[in-house]
């Protein structure tokens, strides 16, 4: 049977862990979008000095485990004098990781915009960055937003790996409480419920955002 008194007693601790998980997720989301957009535009650029490093970045991130990436940042980088605390190590690792997946999503979205749109803009004297910003990206958004939302849900769940670099977020909070309560089922169950709340809440928010973004331009 579930020990409800334990659950009620320790819920506030786990809730605090969940807040940290949310915080790290949102910061990584924002940085990951910026990195993803920059990488996508670089990959589509004619300049090989941009294209080549960006392709390498996406490839290396997508072909290695997030856990190893986090270890390299947190345990490896201090060797070179780059000593980030667990929070920023986690944010950096997660942002770089989700950024690579975002780059692929954004790139595909940009390529889905018909060539005629770019030609129409260019024939009006719009330069390449103006065309990208005002014509291509807004249209690509329609295709990009749902899979980016999906990447965000994955990101929220991936934050649990940051527990391995000693950041006391939701998962590590649960683990630590098990040490004192010997109630692994209750603790992990609470963590699971809180993750589900975070991901489901985000999904609902994203759906609202999607609806707003798609309004008018239903084509």
């Amino acid at each position: 049977m579930l020990d409800w008194s334990i659950i009620i007693h320790y819920f506030p601790f786990l809730f605090k862990g969940a807040l940290l998980t949310l915080q790290i997720s949102v910061i990584s989301l924002i940085l990951g979008l910026a990195v993803g957009l920059a990488a996508a535009l670089s990959i589509l650029s004619h300049n090989i000095l941009l294209r080549w490093p960006a392709r390498f970045y996406v490839w290396i991130i997508r072909s290695t485990p997030l856990l190893v990436q986090l270890f390299i940042i947190y345990y490896g980088l201090p060797q070179f004098g780059i000593d980030l605390n667990p929070f920023w190590s986690g944010v950096l690792g997660l942002a770089l990781n989700t950024g690579a997946y975002n780059a692929e999503t954004i790139r595909a979205g940009i390529l889905s915009v018909p060539k005629g749109q770019v030609e129409a803009a260019r024939s009006l004297g719009m330069g390449s960055s103006l065309t990208m910003r005002r014509i291509v990206l807004p249209q690509a958004m329609r295709l990009i937003i749902p899979p980016l939302g999906n990447n965000f849900i994955i990101l929220i769940k991936d934050t649990s790996l940051v527990s391995t670099i000693t950041l006391v977020e939701l998962t590590l909070t649960a683990q630590r409480l098990i040490g004192s309560t010997y109630k692994p089922f209750e603790m992990y169950l609470m963590a699971a419920v809180l993750y589900a709340v975070l991901t489901t809440g985000s999904s609902l928010l994203l759906r609202q955002f999607e609806k707003r973004a798609l309004k008018g331009a239903a084509a």
Partner: peptide, 28 residues
């Protein structure tokens, strides 16, 4: 040099008016 295409190529995310004012405002 104004150009008109076989496939129209209007900007679908902009209204008719926004299509027409886009370049005069942004470019000129």
């Amino acid at each position: 040099l104004g150009m008109v295409f076989q496939q129209f190529n209007l900007f679908p995310h902009k209204t008719v008016l926004e299509n027409v004012v886009e370049a005069p405002v942004q470019v000129l």
